[in-house]
Design a protein around this nucleic acid. Structure first.
Lengths: 260, 260
DNA sequence: GCCGAGTTTTCATCTGGTGAAAGACAACGT
DNA sequence: ACGTTGTCTTTCACCAGATGAAAACTCGGC
């Protein structure tokens, strides 16, 4: 079997903390359970070293051993992670509005934040009969393809936009916009209209309409979107509901930046 | 203040890994943002040591610095935590059914698993007009008080039940059952009826009806509940819907087995 | 019973971690 | 403006915890 990541994290592995983090980072959506040997290899550690660190992590609850002796992320780590203000904190405020959107449309409702040059999905309500989407809670995507990503990018700092536009833009489908000039115009339109549309840029049959959520200081800290079947979709009509939800969420935001 | 003999938290703090975990554990629902000094004190570390470990954690994304220089749990840690099979994995399977329950009733819908002798809430859909509840996603509660806790306890291994019954049972309200004999009878009733009722045992005005979710091998791995206003509630009627949802979730479960 | 992959322990070596103390910085209160 | 206070960061000499190699152990499978 091939080893997906050769050793991109070798630089950080000199310190003990780096090794612990490498162990945690070895897990992914596609590999939620690993044997000790696999884990050691992925983290770039010797087996005995991995064994020692893993023992401590298991004792604490950061990792769990299944009946098959394989290692998984533990409930305790999930618990701590759920204290992230940009994770559950935001989600908590947004959920009622996402519920409303779902109840109204029974389509996919998505909620995401920006981290670096990627969009991270914080919540996803998947309609059982709605169009299938690739996204996953906790998953990442390029900013320029998804609806939420475009909404966040359009209202991000100019430096961020330039970085994205300067880097090569990966294409997921034939309709993914990869031309920086076209993208630049799209971002301007998004700022003018107050919402973003991604038509078939992630999967050909899906269309996403997204709106940014602004915090009190005017920065776009999150975005909400509806993903519907591409044919026959009426973006402008959906945008009304989505922008309304976005405003509602903004109003319900906990004062994250309070100085105290 | 004089340097006191380090309290009970010092045993795990000898190793570097223990210190890193102590830093993470210093955060809690009531203290989601800490200064470096506070963090060091809570973790039982010297300030320079905390500073070094924290720097690495921030560089990796496990922690984040706010504009106020305070430290918070980072999005990256939330991401990794969301890979926990008993966290998001379960949630993913359950959410559509929880949605249905919510749409049907617009009351509080809760979804929880057992960890040791406590119940951990994995998902909560809070109706905006429903009765307020104390629970929080990622939060813990004693097994014997909440509806989900009772459902899980009733179908847990006998050793677990004995441990809970042997320990002192904290009371949250005047209606919290704290008599082991009464509780034992309640658990038998829950097994007979297929659902649990917690009437005012957490907050006096709330009543919770819960049903366990069984995995393929017959163990109760999670529970789902509805929390409604206590007066005028019809537990038996709600139980039908909840048991139906529980069965649906069980059917949708990914084939994963509970560790331990 | 033998084998092999995966896991755990041992041991001598040494590298990365440690606290104290001092320096740098920002935010008050007078 | 000035000193004060609290927090954050850096320095340095010392050492405790971490390390890999190799060996011992544990399981299933044949």
């Amino acid at each position: 079997m091939p080893v997906p990541p050769p050793s991109a994290a070798a630089d950080r592995c000199r310190t003990v903390t780096g090794k612990v983090l490498a162990l945690l980072a070895a897990f992914g959506p596609d590999t939620p359970a690993l044997t000790l040997s696999e884990l050691a290899r992925r983290a770039g550690l010797s087996v005995p070293t991995a064994h020692r660190r893993v023992s401590e992590l298991v004792a604490w609850g950061a990792l769990e051993r299944g009946p098959d002796r394989r290692l998984r992320i533990g409930l305790r780590l999930w618990e701590v992670g759920s204290l992230a203000p940009r994770g559950l904190g935001l989600r908590e405020a947004a959920l009622p509005f996402l519920e409303d959107l779902y109840e109204l449309t029974h389509e996919n409702v998505q909620f995401a934040v920006r981290d670096g040059l990627e969009v991270v999905f914080v919540e996803r309500i998947a309609g059982r009969h709605a169009v299938p989407v690739l996204t996953r809670v906790g998953g990442r995507f390029a900013l320029h393809a998804t609806g939420v990503g475009l909404a966040l990018l359009a209202h991000a700092a100019p430096e961020v936009q330039e970085q994205v536009l300067a880097a090569p833009l990966p294409a997921y489908t034939s309709k993914t916009v990869t031309d920086p000039m076209v993208l630049r115009q799209m971002l301007a339109d998004i700022r003018r209209d107050g919402y973003a549309v991604s038509d078939g840029q992630v999967t050909l049959d899906a269309l996403s309409v997204a709106a940014p959520i602004f915090s009190a200081d005017g920065t776009a800290i999150a975005a909400v979107s509806l993903v519907v079947r591409a044919d026959g979709a009426q973006p402008a009509a959906l945008a009304l509901a989505i922008r309304g939800a976005a405003r509602g969420i903004a109003r319900a935001l906990p004062t994250l930046r309070q100085p105290c």
